[in-house]
């Protein structure tokens, strides 16, 4: 299996370069994932750097650009991948080393949407109840693993990473706007209503296209806009 991998070590390299690798995956080609190949490569060259944790598509650590498309290495089967497999770090973010990018801005935007329930009622003894229908409203929202595939595939996020919230944070914003137990809808909408935070989204839909969990941040963004219209009207 042939791979071309983005390499950059700020301590030793003046600029990034692409390095060719060739490896026999030694795996059952029907079940092998790209992460397995990367781990095998790292056994050969321990300077190769990438993030990984669960290996099950749950933690979102091993998000990277695979043959030009953002995805998770651990859920990308090697069978059928066009070779050489070109691996780059997630686009638009500062590279720390090789396939590892700095996601500080991404997490800051996540924090900025206050991703927690705001409810001023006295805390009940057991739980805050929801009807099954109210709970269904959260489907397709709560499953986000914050891998950053969507935001780093978004041109608006590339141009304004400091001012546009990005699809991941906006999906989370809608996750709490849609929650029947949350009491801060007005403030949440206020915080998003300016020319940049929400409205830099031009419905390009790269976010929905690349989401490894098959979520739809573009639809969540549209629903935030609809809520703003309803509130204004």
């Amino acid at each position: 299996m042939k791979l071309k991998i983005y390499r950059y070590n700020p301590d030793t390299d003046k600029k990034p370069y692409m390095e060719d690798f060739e490896i026999d995956p030694g795996l059952d080609s029907g079940s092998g994932m790209l992460l397995d190949v990367l781990i095998a490569l790292k056994a050969q060259d321990d300077s190769l750097s990438f993030r990984r944790s669960c290996g099950e598509g749950v933690c979102g650590s091993d998000a990277m650009n695979i043959n030009g498309r953002n995805g998770l290495a651990c859920t990308t089967p090697i069978i059928g991948l066009p070779e050489p497999v070109v691996l780059r770090p997630l686009p638009g973010r500062p590279v720390i080393r090789d396939l590892i990018v700095d996601l500080t801005q991404f997490y800051n935007q996540y924090r900025a949407v206050k991703p927690w329930l705001i409810n001023h009622d006295p805390v009940p003894e057991i739980e805050r109840l929801q009807s099954p229908e109210e709970r269904e409203e959260l489907d397709g929202l709560y499953e986000c693993i914050l891998c950053a595939c969507c935001s780093t595939a978004c041109p608006s996020f590339w141009w304004h990473p400091d001012r546009f919230m990005g699809p991941a944070a906006l999906l989370q914003a809608y996750r709490f706007l849609a929650d029947s137990r949350d009491q801060a809808s007005g403030k949440r909408l206020d915080a998003l209503e300016d020319p940049y935070r929400l409205f830099r989204c031009h419905t390009i839909m790269n976010c929905t296209d690349v989401c490894p969990k098959s979520l739809n941040p573009a639809r969540a963004i549209a629903r935030i806009k609809h809520r703003m219209i309803k509130r204004a009207g």
């Binding site: 935007q109 900025a112 206020d190 300016d194 020319p195 940049y196 929400l198 806009k225 219209i229």
Partner: peptide
Amino acid sequence: MMKPEYRSSLRRGLGEWLL
């Protein structure tokens, strides 16, 4: 880091988008 409770006289994103 962004200020979550930011309010601005430029709060016109919705109006322009709708227009």
